[in-house]
């Protein structure tokens, strides 16, 4: 770890929106994440799947700066961010949702998204009026009915959509979605998939953690599979479905 710390931030010349290199996180004696390498390319949805406790959320926390890795480096848009605090990484264009909800519970749905748009206006060059941004996102995600409801009074599935809307309000280049579809049924998940594909068409890259295998297979260009903190497979949806290690570890041979 010291060897990495002493090096100056590096500039990489790849096109990747996000690159993480050799990231490990140890909690006490447990390796939550071990030597994970992962790349997200622009214009793509990249899937990150694996059983519960495989280290997916920890990886998200490392990327966004909420968790300091024991080892490893993180690059956003070619720029090393390993030592930047979370808010400075966000300002480089990453936004996320949380598996365990992190909504602003005492604000309304509209205020949640408005607040995020105001934050964005305060640090970016984009000076679009926050109210307009928030109204657009409410429409896009379909939260009109609950615009004035306090978020802590809403069902979890809808609160997740509020988090999605809030993340979109910062107009991210890279969106990290942590099980945003859980709590939604088939039709809702389909609509969510459409929205993601839409976002990617507009130029947002997505890193998707999701339990709904069908959704992942449908929208992702590339998939990484985590198990016990290690990447055990990567490839296109077709390749992943055929991979015997993945079937054994996660999918279960019947499910695919």
């Amino acid at each position: 770890m010291p060897a990495v710390d002493l090096e100056a931030p590096e500039q990489r010349t790849s096109d990747a929106v996000l690159e993480i290199i050799d990231v490990s996180v140890r909690f006490g004696g447990i390796n939550a994440v071990s030597d994970v390498n992962l790349t997200v390319m622009p214009g793509e949805i990249t899937g990150l799947i694996g059983p519960n406790g495989a280290g997916k959320t920890t990886t998200f926390n490392v990327i966004t700066g909420l968790q300091e890795p024991t080892n490893g480096r993180v690059f956003i848009g070619g720029r090393e961010v390993s030592h930047l605090p979370p808010y400075r990484r966000a300002r480089l264009g990453i936004a996320r949702t949380f598996q365990r909800l992190e909504v602003f519970g005492s604000l309304t749905v509209f205020e949640n998204i408005l607040a995020a748009a105001e934050f964005h206006k305060s640090w970016s060059e984009d000076q679009t009026p926050p109210r307009r941004v928030a109204a657009e996102i409410i429409d896009r995600v379909g939260l009109q009915r609950v615009g004035n409801a306090r978020v802590d009074a809403l069902p979890t599935g809808i609160a997740r959509l509020v988090e999605l809307g809030r993340a979109l309000a910062t107009r991210p280049r890279l969106l990290l979605l942590d099980e945003v579809g859980s709590g939604l049924n088939q039709d809702e998940t389909d609509a969510l998939g459409d929205l993601m594909l839409d976002l990617v068409r507009d130029g947002t890259a997505i890193l998707l953690v999701e339990h709904d295998v069908e959704l992942v297979m449908r929208v992702c260009t590339r998939i990484y599979v985590l198990d016990f903190g290690r990447i055990i497979a990567q490839g296109t949806p077709a390749e992943i479905q055929k991979d015997p290690a993945v079937q054994a570890a996660y999918l279960g041979s019947d499910e695919v």
């Binding site: 605090p85 966000a90 300002r91 949380f98 992190e102 934050f119 910062t170």
Partner: peptide, 8 residues
């Protein structure tokens, strides 16, 4: 945590 990841 959410505020920090929104650039605050």
């Amino acid at each position: 945590a959410a505020c920090a990841t929104l650039g605050v």
